Simulated assay, not measured.
Amino acid sequence: MTNSHPYDRPAHDHEVLVIGGGAAGLAAAATLARARRSVLVVDAGRPRNAPASGVHTYLAREGTPPAELLAAGRAEVRGYGGDIRQGTATAAGRTGDGGFRVTLDDGTVLTAARLLVTTGLTDELPAIPGLAELWGRDVLHCPYCHGWEVRDRAVGVLGTSALAVHQALLWRQWTDRVTLFLHTAPEPGDEAYERLAARGIAVVDGEVTRLVAENGRLTAAELAGSRQVGCDALAVATRLTANSAVLDGLGLAAEEMQMGGLAIGTRIPADPTGATAVPGVWVAGNVANPVEQVIGAAAAGVRAGAAINADLVEADTRRAVEAARAAAGA
């Protein structure tokens, strides 16, 4: 539902098209629909957190299964008059009137006055046999998301960069049974070894060659020579790659994001509201901030939705003023 206006708007299918139906996209869509904007969410149906049993550190929804949280979000968007469509956006470009044209994988072309991309990211996993199968269950990436669930258990940390020592010390907050597998990480210095030893963190040399599981649960990490070190969970720092290909046609390229001076992935640069360098295009969630958790992604969606509505209000007001002046001069 939208307000009626005594002037002509450019003819688009929707005022706002949201590409991505995760927490960021749905929160933005709900914000826009509550603002009485015509909004469509295009959802590819491949949420990053699908393997997880629950969403964590999400106030008042702690432990909610990801699919349940998204279903509730879709219902809220529809309840305010927003629309949701299953599909994958493959390309985006400009229309002649300054709006946007988005092509879906089935050939459908949609148009909108404003575009919000909330397509998230892809976790690039280390190529270790058995790791991908356990991803999201016993192979974990974030202690704030999963630390409580593996508290007091044997947790291995797979070293892949100079941040490995920091990771191991961080996971030590949840359990005193932490083992740092150096794997491909650089050799720690004397001070780092001292810090690890002081916290009771074991350090294992050599590369992990595979993960061992029984009945679908992790039991050990295996190194060269078939040496196995028992662990109940393995913390892995993935490379966080923004799912931003749909923006290529608009000239928006992903940039490297760094943490501690090390490249950890890519993101689409944007201001605090999610506005990009291309007028009329916003981003929110993990495509803009790879380290954002679910509740933060939802908050970013709300900010972007409010900013888009404010931008549309300015456009509506400008057209109203032009229409009033034309009428007065007639």
Rank of each mutant, 00 (worst) to 15 (best):
R37S: 04
L26M: 07
R177A: 12
I128C: 10
D83P: 08
I264L: 09
I128M: 14
H14P: 02
R195H: 13
V150K: 01
A113N: 10
A263N: 11
V102I: 13
R227C: 00
D97A: 12
P6L: 12
G249H: 07
D316R: 13
A307Y: 04
A304L: 11
V208G: 00
A27N: 11
T31V: 02
D232Q: 10
I84A: 09
C142M: 03
N3R: 15
E124M: 12
A24G: 02
N289D: 15
E314M: 12
E207F: 07
C142W: 05
G249Y: 09
N289A: 14
V139I: 07
R94F: 07
E222L: 04
G45W: 00
I268R: 00
V16F: 05
A44I: 09
Y7K: 02
L134F: 09
R239E: 08
H166L: 09
V291I: 15
G189K: 01
E222F: 03
H166I: 02
G54R: 00
R36L: 11
T95D: 14
T209H: 03
P126E: 10
E187V: 12
H12C: 09
G249F: 09
G73I: 04
V229A: 06
G280F: 05
E255I: 14
V117T: 07
P269F: 06
P186C: 01
E133G: 15
A71F: 00
R172A: 11
T184C: 02
A299H: 05
A72C: 06
I264H: 11
R9L: 15
A198D: 08
A23L: 04
G25F: 01
A213R: 12
T118N: 03
A284Q: 07
E194P: 04
V212T: 15
T273M: 13
R34M: 01
W148I: 12
V41A: 08
T276V: 12
T95G: 15
G296F: 05
T103H: 05
V16T: 10
A127N: 08
D232F: 09
A284W: 10
G99M: 05
A154R: 15
A168F: 02
R177P: 05
V203R: 06
G265W: 08
R195I: 05
G22D: 02
D13H: 08
Q228R: 15
A221N: 02
V212N: 13
W171N: 06
S4N: 13
A213E: 11
Y80Q: 10
Y144H: 09
G25W: 04
V229I: 14
V229H: 15
R151P: 05
T179P: 04
A197M: 07
H12P: 00
L252M: 02
A299Y: 03
V109D: 06
A75R: 15
S38L: 04
I19P: 01
R37W: 03
